[in-house]
């Protein structure tokens, strides 16, 4: 896929079997018994001297929405960014442990990061369309990756991506206007369309609706629910009700540790850990 050396790959798989030993899992963290798309083992992260993540073990379930919740500074965004190596851009970051996508270590030396990010797309808190036309926003990455060969193929891809993101009907007649001229909610859906244009398998979303009004938020949530059928989605949110509404699984982070990971219904009605209970009910921790 994105690893250029197959020898690397087989080595990775062997290591993975050793590291999935359940004895290494911290107390209170139970990974769902379903197909894991992304597998995280003993993940640690430091910003300089400061450790931000401690021994995270987590299986992200395929074609499900997984929400990451927790107080500010708990490490949920750092964790999210580990899943497509966005932290590589930050100086002084050290990462240990293993993150696998479909069994391949994404931190292996020969991984092509550009390729990786076409498999694991990302949508940010603040909509950040390119200062280009709506059409070019979508077409840019597929052109870079050589996904569409002809103009008509590209037209098709742009339309398909915008349709999947629920934006086509609103912008079909003005594809050449700047993406930045759209409303906040539309811009965010444009960013989602841009992310899915390169046909990723996993989409990471960092507070995708926190800058939007309730109607635009509802539209994004509806979209997430539809995308779930084709993509594995990991979403960071401060809005607990949003996690409860959109996610099949929810992970609670606290002070750099994964405290509890369970199906969303269980986590919100009968959490196992007192820390989770205190956080989701708004108590002093």
């Amino acid at each position: 896929m994105y690893s250029t050396e197959s020898a690397e790959y087989s080595e990775t798989v062997t290591d993975r079997d050793a590291s999935t030993d359940t004895a290494t899992e911290p107390a209170g963290v139970q990974t769902p018994e379903a197909q894991a798309k992304v597998l995280v083992r003993d993940l640690k992260l430091w910003y300089g001297e400061t450790q931000a993540l401690y021994d995270i073990n987590m299986d992200v379930v395929e074609r499900q929405v997984t929400a990451l919740i927790g107080p500010s500074g708990c490490g949920k965004s750092s964790f999210l960014r580990c899943l497509n190596r966005m932290n590589d851009l930050i100086p002084d970051v050290a990462i240990r442990g293993r993150v696998e996508l479909d069994g391949q270590d994404i931190y292996a030396p020969h991984v092509d990061i550009v390729q990786l990010r076409s498999h694991v797309g990302m949508v940010f808190q603040k909509p950040n369309p390119f200062p280009k036309s709506i059409y070019e926003n979508i077409a840019y990455a597929p052109r870079l990756h050589g996904i569409a060969e002809s103009r008509s193929q590209m037209d098709e891809l742009v339309e398909d991506s915008l349709r999947r993101a629920g934006l086509w009907n609103e912008v079909a007649d003005r594809l050449d206007t700047p993406g930045t001229a759209l409303s906040g909610g539309q811009q965010q859906r444009l960013c989602i369309a841009r992310a899915i244009a390169v046909n990723p398998e996993v989409i990471l979303m960092d507070e995708p609706a926190s800058a939007l009004d309730p109607m635009a938020t509802a539209t994004i949530e509806e979209l997430i629910d539809e995308l779930r059928h084709n993509y594995t989605i990991v979403i960071v949110t401060h809005n607990l009700q949003q996690a409860a509404r959109v996610a099949g699984y929810t992970a609670f982070f606290h002070m750099g540790r994964l405290i509890e990971y369970n199906d969303t219904d269980t986590l919100f009605t009968t959490p196992r850990e007192q820390k989770t209970e205190d956080y989701i009910t708004g108590r002093y921790g």
Partner: peptide, 9 residues
């Protein structure tokens, strides 16, 4: 309040 966990119960 959209209660959760023990509050909801």
């Amino acid at each position: 309040r959209q209660p959760a966990a023990s509050d909801l119960r």
